[in-house]
Computed example of a mutant assay.
Amino acid sequence: MRLATAADEILPLKDPRVQSNPAYLVVILLARVVSQLGTLDSINPKVIEGLYAADLAYLQDFYNRINASESPKVQVTCPQCGYRHAVEPEQAGGL
Protein backbone atom coordinates (compact mmCIF):
# COMPACT_ATOMS: atom_id res chain seq x y z
CA MET A 1 0.00 0.00 0.00
CA ARG A 2 1.24 3.45 -0.85
CA LEU A 3 0.52 6.73 0.88
CA ALA A 4 -2.69 8.37 -0.30
CA THR A 5 -2.68 11.57 -2.30
CA ALA A 6 -5.30 14.31 -2.15
CA ALA A 7 -6.68 12.98 -5.46
CA ASP A 8 -7.05 9.50 -3.94
CA GLU A 9 -9.37 10.94 -1.30
CA ILE A 10 -11.21 13.50 -3.45
CA LEU A 11 -11.82 11.83 -6.83
CA PRO A 12 -13.78 8.83 -5.47
CA LEU A 13 -16.35 11.28 -4.08
CA LYS A 14 -17.43 11.94 -7.68
CA ASP A 15 -17.96 8.23 -8.38
CA PRO A 16 -21.70 7.42 -8.76
CA ARG A 17 -21.28 4.28 -6.63
CA VAL A 18 -20.02 6.42 -3.75
CA GLN A 19 -22.69 9.07 -4.27
CA SER A 20 -25.43 6.45 -4.05
CA ASN A 21 -23.75 4.58 -1.17
CA PRO A 22 -21.15 6.55 0.86
CA ALA A 23 -19.91 3.33 2.49
CA TYR A 24 -18.50 2.34 -0.92
CA LEU A 25 -15.86 5.09 -0.57
CA VAL A 26 -13.52 2.73 1.28
CA VAL A 27 -13.69 0.21 -1.58
CA ILE A 28 -12.72 2.79 -4.20
CA LEU A 29 -10.08 4.35 -1.97
CA LEU A 30 -8.38 1.05 -1.15
CA ALA A 31 -8.50 -0.01 -4.81
CA ARG A 32 -6.53 3.15 -5.60
CA VAL A 33 -3.83 2.83 -2.92
CA VAL A 34 -3.28 -0.92 -2.50
CA SER A 35 -0.30 -1.56 -4.77
CA GLN A 36 0.09 -5.30 -4.27
CA LEU A 37 -2.10 -8.04 -2.90
CA GLY A 38 -0.71 -11.55 -2.97
CA THR A 39 -0.11 -12.75 -6.51
CA LEU A 40 -2.79 -10.59 -8.16
CA ASP A 41 -1.69 -8.64 -11.21
CA SER A 42 -3.98 -5.68 -10.55
CA ILE A 43 -6.18 -4.35 -7.78
CA ASN A 44 -9.63 -2.95 -8.61
CA PRO A 45 -12.87 -2.37 -6.71
CA LYS A 46 -14.12 -5.90 -7.47
CA VAL A 47 -11.04 -7.35 -5.75
CA ILE A 48 -11.61 -5.19 -2.67
CA GLU A 49 -15.33 -6.12 -2.66
CA GLY A 50 -14.36 -9.79 -2.56
CA LEU A 51 -12.23 -9.54 0.58
CA TYR A 52 -13.34 -11.07 3.85
CA ALA A 53 -14.58 -8.46 6.33
CA ALA A 54 -11.57 -9.03 8.60
CA ASP A 55 -9.17 -8.45 5.70
CA LEU A 56 -11.00 -5.28 4.68
CA ALA A 57 -10.86 -4.04 8.29
CA TYR A 58 -7.12 -4.75 8.40
CA LEU A 59 -6.50 -2.76 5.22
CA GLN A 60 -8.64 0.12 6.51
CA ASP A 61 -6.69 0.18 9.77
CA PHE A 62 -3.36 0.04 7.94
CA TYR A 63 -4.47 2.85 5.60
CA ASN A 64 -5.41 4.99 8.60
CA ARG A 65 -2.12 4.29 10.38
CA ILE A 66 0.16 5.14 7.44
CA ASN A 67 -1.83 8.18 6.38
CA ALA A 68 -2.32 9.67 9.85
CA SER A 69 -1.12 13.26 10.12
CA GLU A 70 0.21 12.78 13.63
CA SER A 71 2.35 10.05 15.12
CA PRO A 72 0.55 7.48 17.24
CA LYS A 73 1.12 7.79 20.97
CA VAL A 74 1.07 5.04 23.56
CA GLN A 75 0.35 5.67 27.24
CA VAL A 76 3.08 4.16 29.42
CA THR A 77 3.78 4.13 33.14
CA CYS A 78 7.27 4.41 34.54
CA PRO A 79 7.91 1.29 36.63
CA GLN A 80 10.11 3.23 39.08
CA CYS A 81 8.09 6.37 39.84
CA GLY A 82 4.63 5.50 38.49
CA TYR A 83 4.46 8.61 36.27
CA ARG A 84 2.15 8.13 33.25
CA HIS A 85 3.05 9.77 29.94
CA ALA A 86 2.61 9.35 26.18
CA VAL A 87 5.46 8.17 23.98
CA GLU A 88 5.79 7.45 20.29
CA PRO A 89 6.48 3.77 19.64
CA GLU A 90 9.66 3.00 17.76
CA GLN A 91 9.02 2.37 14.06
CA ALA A 92 9.70 -1.09 12.68
CA GLY A 93 13.04 -1.21 10.91
CA GLY A 94 14.42 1.62 12.99
CA LEU A 95 12.84 4.41 10.91
Rank of each mutant, 00 (worst) to 15 (best):
M1H: 06
M1F: 04
R2A: 00
A4D: 01
A6V: 03
A7I: 00
A7Y: 01
A7K: 03
E9N: 04
I10W: 02
L11W: 01
L11D: 01
L11N: 01
L11V: 00
L11T: 01
P12K: 03
D15F: 03
D15K: 04
D15V: 05
P16K: 04
P16H: 05
R17P: 05
R17F: 06
V18H: 04
S20H: 15
S20N: 15
N21Y: 09
P22E: 11
P22T: 14
A23Y: 10
Y24E: 04
Y24S: 07
Y24T: 08
L25Y: 13
L25D: 01
L25A: 03
V27S: 01
V27M: 00
I28Y: 02
L29N: 01
L29I: 02
L29Y: 05
L30Y: 03
S35L: 10
S35V: 11
Q36R: 14
Q36H: 13
L37D: 04
L37C: 01
G38E: 11
T39V: 08
T39D: 10
T39K: 12
L40M: 13
S42K: 15
I43Q: 06
P45F: 07
P45I: 02
V47F: 12
V47K: 07
I48L: 02
G50V: 03
G50A: 02
G50H: 04
Y52P: 06
A53M: 05
A54V: 14
D55S: 11
L56T: 09
A57P: 05
A57H: 09
A57L: 07
Y58L: 11
Y58S: 12
L59K: 08
L59R: 09
Q60R: 15
D61Y: 14
Y63Q: 08
Y63W: 15
N64A: 13
N64D: 15
R65A: 07
I66D: 07
N67S: 08
N67E: 07
A68L: 08
A68N: 12
A68W: 12
S69G: 11
S69V: 09
S71A: 10
P72D: 10
P72C: 05
P72W: 04
K73A: 06
K73I: 14
V74S: 04
Q75C: 03
Q75M: 10
V76T: 11
T77P: 09
T77G: 08
T77M: 09
C78P: 10
P79L: 11
P79V: 10
Q80H: 12
Q80E: 13
Q80F: 09
Y83P: 04
H85Y: 10
A86L: 06
V87E: 12
E88H: 15
P89T: 09
P89M: 08
P89V: 05
E90A: 09
Q91W: 11
Q91T: 14
Q91L: 11
A92S: 14
G93P: 10
G93E: 07
G93W: 04
G94C: 06
L95H: 14
